[in-house]
Design a protein around this nucleic acid. Structure first.
Length: 243
DNA sequence: AAGCAGTGCAACCGCAGATCA
DNA sequence: CTGATCTGCGGTTGCACTGCT
C-alpha cells in the first residue's frame, strides 16, 4: 500500500477556497456526482487536488452540513461518544447529523477537552465559552444556502437526531424516526456507558458501528446487541424493525 | 487605540484500508 | 497474488479573529 501521490502539487492551488471555487465544485457535484475525487477537479476545471475537493465538500459544501455553534446536547453527546469510542471522529460524526468529523474534532480539541480537564467529568457542560465567531471571509460559502436543504436545517437540532444523510447504516434503521427527535438524556448515557464498559468486546473491536454496515459479519452480533439494547433503552424500539 | 496572547476553525499532511487491474 | 491507486481518517498546522491589558 504505497502512499498515494495525492496532489501532483505543481500548479495546484492550496489554501482557503474562494466562493468561486466553491460554486464550481458544488455545481460539478450536483451535475456529475463525486464518484471519482481524483478526476473531479480536472473535470470541474478546478486547480485543486481531489483530496482537497473532497474535504471541502464534506466539511463545508455538503447541503446537509449544519453550521453554527454546537448545542449543549450535541456537546454532551460528543463527550459521551468520545468516552465510548475514543478519537473515532468519523463515527462520532455519524451520530451527530449535520456535523462533520473535522468540526467535532475541532470542538473537542478546542473546548470540550479543556473543559473536561478543567472540571469534574461529571459536571454539566455549559455553553461555549466564546460567542460564535464571524465566519472567515474566505470560508464563507454562498452556495450551500442555495442548495436543496435537508431536514437538518429545519430544526434547531437540540438533540441527537440521526439522519439518512449522515449515516446510511444507522439511518436505515432510524429513518422512520426522522420526524421525532432522538432524545438521550444523561441518565440514559450513564446506564449505557456502564453497560458498555462492564460488558462487551466493544473495546477490542474498536468499532461498534462497523456492525451497522451491510456486511453480515458474525462478530457484529455482539455489537448489534449493543445497539438493540441502546435503542430499547432510548425507547426507540420502532426503529428496530428496520434492522 | 494599539499591542499581545489566546482561541477557533479551515485546510493540509501522511498513514492505512479498500479496491482494482 | 501482487502492486498500484483511490478513498477515508486522525493528527497537526497556520492564520484570522477575539478579548484583555
Amino acid at each position: 500500500m504505497g502512499r498515494s501521490p495525492c496532489c501532483e502539487k505543481l500548479g495546484l492551488k492550496r489554501g482557503p477556497w474562494t466562493a468561486e471555487e466553491d460554486r464550481t465544485l458544488v455545481a460539478h457535484i450536483e451535475r456529475h456526482g463525486h464518484s471519482n475525487w481524483r478526476a473531479l477537479p480536472k473535470q470541474a476545471g478546478l486547480l485543486r487536488c481531489g483530496k482537497s475537493c473532497r474535504l471541502r465538500w464534506i466539511n463545508y459544501l455538503r447541503p446537509d452540513v449544519k453550521r453554527g455553534n454546537f448545542t449543549s446536547e450535541e456537546e454532551d453527546a460528543i463527550i459521551q461518544l468520545h468516552s465510548m469510542l475514543g478519537n473515532k471522529w468519523s463515527l462520532i460524526a455519524a451520530r451527530l447529523p449535520g456535523r462533520t468529523d473535522n468540526e467535532i474534532k475541532n470542538v473537542w480539541n478546542t473546548h470540550l477537552k479543556k473543559r473536561l480537564e478543567a472540571s469534574n467529568p461529571s459536571c454539566q457542560p455549559g455553553a461555549p465559552k466564546r460567542k460564535a465567531k464571524k465566519p472567515m471571509a474566505v470560508a464563507t460559502p454562498e452556495v450551500p444556502t442555495s442548495l436543496p436543504v435537508s431536514s437538518l436545517e429545519q430544526s434547531p437540532s437540540t438533540s441527537l437526531e440521526l439522519s439518512a444523510a449522515e449515516d446510511d447504516s444507522m439511518a436505515t434503521s432510524l429513518e422512520n424516526t426522522s420526524d421525532e427527535e432522538f432524545q438521550i438524556d444523561d441518565s440514559f448515557w450513564s446506564e449505557t456507558l456502564a453497560m458498555t464498559v462492564s460488558g462487551s468486546g466493544m473495546e477490542s473491536s474498536g468499532d461498534p458501528f462497523a456492525a451497522d454496515s451491510a456486511s453480515p459479519s458474525s462478530s457484529s452480533n455482539e455489537e448489534m446487541d449493543f445497539w438493540v439494547r441502546l435503542f430499547i433503552q432510548s425507547g426507540d424500539v420502532q426503529s428496530l424493525s428496520q434492522i
